[in-house]
Write a protein that binds this DNA or RNA. Structure first.
Length: 558
RNA sequence: GCGCCCGUAGCUCAACGGGAUAGAGCAACGGACUUCUAAUCCGUAGGUUGUGGGUUCGAGUCCCGCCGGGCGCGCCA
């Protein structure tokens, strides 16, 4: 069945065209019908403001135009009532039979419900986390991990073919610094600290000792006798490999899985950086100045040009990043989503410029900025500083508050606004904690079916649904919220805004709690009981589906 | 100094492309368990959407100024 909002759009488009033809008026270029939900539910299920938008073009009062549009509207079996309200709103109410068909659709093909063809089978890559393998993941990475993962889930639901990718920044100076830090720990542990002084700005976390111990275990003290520069690559490689193992384990436990782990080193090994620079040079987007090679990013709206190759001959990080993005598009992705820390926002214009130089639209690259996570524990703010090595790791947080609550908190706010994360609150099993509120709804639903089973009552067949019997305000509200799921998924996909789905889950759980408190399911009388059981089942399917997208588990009981 | 983002109830936040009477939760107060789980529900109170202009049928949303906060402005990554 075609979505009801699509059907309504077509009806109104026909009506508007008919009116336009009668009046001999030309519709504005690219005119489209925009449907919205009335703010007050008693006004109807849908509303449109076409009459107000077109009043000027038609030279008529919005109110009169609205009435004219209505009288030209083709019939539709799902439409119960249409009325003009206020200055020219057109409000539409749908039939109860439409509600019934919606519930039947959810019950009979839950897999399909909420799925859309927005992506049209196009390929999208979501690249996220991408932390240097220089230390364990901290909470900021965790937020990016949750946002990237759920964004990918949502895009898949909206008809995109999705790949998740982690870009391993394993080629830069930071890796060298890590190697030297661990090397210094190695000498220190073996009693010769003076031979390998700890580097300035080195990585100070305790984990560097763990890494050094691991190397001692595997290699003994043989590096003591080797020149530092000679053994450094071994320290870098071994440390990076080990840290990457930790990172994979953390992400795995956080229910985040990648299709591709892409190494920055591989970019160089495949010569893609040089190739990309040649590509830009051949198209005249580069020039030499002060002994360096520059990219003319100002030609694409950046505020200044950017260096690709330093005067000392080595490529910049930006150069490898352009090569990386070229490779993404060369791999056939129609859209590329990057999830970055918000402190990188100044980097966006040059990256968008690069994408254009590569011959793509700047809109083919979407960038999600992840704002800071402020950790609180009760009263005090937990300080975070990579410099001192005393940052809070993702591991610590999920061990302390659990994966469900951590994911929920990371996802509940729009990702570009800073997040206050109260560890005490997230752990607390109380009404202040929204995770439990949502999960509790699942547990209650399960307990209804458990109790039903113990009474010998099974889930009735879909045909047993009698929509007329589901007439209480709480039932109507619950059905209405269920009906918004597809548009919520589409909205979240279109805006790349996973937090909207968290709000939906909370809303649906709330509507269920209200329903539950006001309406008894079991023992309500045979026909009503059956219809309510089906409504509860539909709620369960949609709620579990939403939590599935969010990567939050569904408790049997609480 | 320049650029980007933000400012909504005491607190944390919603408000989908400009739409109708700006919504939730927490905190406060008062109520509801003989019931499928009270980790729930119902009610009360709480607002000049930082501020001053502008655009229009209509502005929390768009434009300009100001105030306050965050971030960025490397041949770092």
């Amino acid at each position: 069945m075609k979505d009801i909002d699509e059907q309504l759009k077509e009806l109104f488009m026909e009506a508007v065209k008919a009116v336009a033809a009668k009046r001999g008026v030309e519709l504005p270029e690219g005119f489209d019908i925009f449907l919205e939900r009335p703010r007050r539910p008693e006004l109807g299920d849908w509303a449109t403001t076409v009459a107000m938008q077109l009043a000027k073009t038609f030279g008529e009062r919005p109110f009169d135009l609205a009435n004219e549009i209505i009288s030209n509207l083709p019939q539709n079996p799902h439409v119960e009532h249409i009325a003009v309200a206020g200055p020219g709103f057109i409000n539409i109410s749908l039939t109860r039979e439409w509600e019934a068909s919606l519930l039947r659709e959810i019950l009979s093909s839950p897999e399909e419900y909420g799925r859309s063809d927005l992506g049209g089978g196009r390929r999208v890559q979501v690249e996220f986390v991408s932390a240097n393998p220089t230390g364990p993941l901290h909470v900021g990475h965790g937020r990016g991990a949750a946002v990237g993962d759920v964004t990918a889930n949502i895009l898949a639901m909206a008809g995109w073919r999705v790949e998740r990718e982690y870009y391993i920044n394993d080629a830069g100076l930071q890796m060298e610094l890590l190697g030297r830090s661990v090397q210094s720990r190695y000498f220190e542990l073996l009693g010769e600290p003076e031979k390998a002084p700890f580097p300035e700005d080195g990585y100070k976390g305790d984990y560097t000792y763990d890494l050094a111990r691991g190397i001692i275990e595997a290699e003994g003290d043989r590096f003591l006798k080797v020149r530092l520069e000679e053994s450094l690559p071994a320290f870098i490689t071994r440390s990076a490999r080990e840290i990457l193992k930790w990172i994979k384990k953390d992400l795995d436990d956080f229910r985040v899985h990648f299709d591709v782990w892409y190494s920055e080193k591989a970019l160089y090994e495949k010569n893609l950086v040089d190739e990309t620079i040649s590509f830009l040079r051949n198209r005249g987007y580069t020039y030499e100045k002060d002994g360096a090679l520059w990219f003319r990013s100002t030609a694409f709206g950046d505020e200044k040009d950017r260096v690709l190759i330093r005067s000392n001959g080595s490529p910049t990080y930006f150069a490898s990043d352009v090569a990386y993005h070229k490779d993404k598009f060369d791999r056939g992705f129609d859209m590329v989503v990057d999830v970055w820390g918000a402190d990188h926002h100044g980097y966006i214009p040059r990256m968008k410029a690069a994408v254009q130089a590569l011959g793509r639209s700047p809109d083919d690259l979407k960038i999600l900025l992840i704002q800071l996570v402020n950790l609180f524990s009760g009263e005090g703010q937990v300080s975070m500083s990579k410099r001192s090595g005393e940052f809070v790791t993702l591991r610590q947080v999920i061990d302390e508050v659990g994966v469900d609550a951590t994911r929920y908190f990371f996802l509940m706010r729009r990702c570009d606004s800073p997040l206050d994360f109260d560890l005490e609150l997230a752990k607390r099993a109380s009404l202040e904690n929204p995770v439990f509120y949502v999960q509790y709804a699942c547990a209650r639903i399960n307990s209804i079916f458990r109790e039903a089973a113990s009474r010998g009552v099974c889930l009735p067949p879909v045909e047993a649904l009698d929509i007329a019997s589901l007439g209480t305000a709480e039932e109507r509200k619950l059905i209405k919220t269920l009906s918004t799921f597809p548009e919520e998924v589409e909205g979240a996909a279109g805006e790349l805004a996973p937090h909207r789905l968290v709000n939906f889950a909370y809303q649906l759980a709330g509507d269920f709690h209200v329903f539950y408190n006001a309406n008894r399911v079991l023992g309500a009388g045979e026909s009503l009981e059956q219809s309510r059981l089906l409504l509860v089942r539909a709620t369960q399917l949609v709620l579990e589906k939403t939590l599935g997208l969010l990567g939050i588990s569904i408790p049997e009981r609480m």
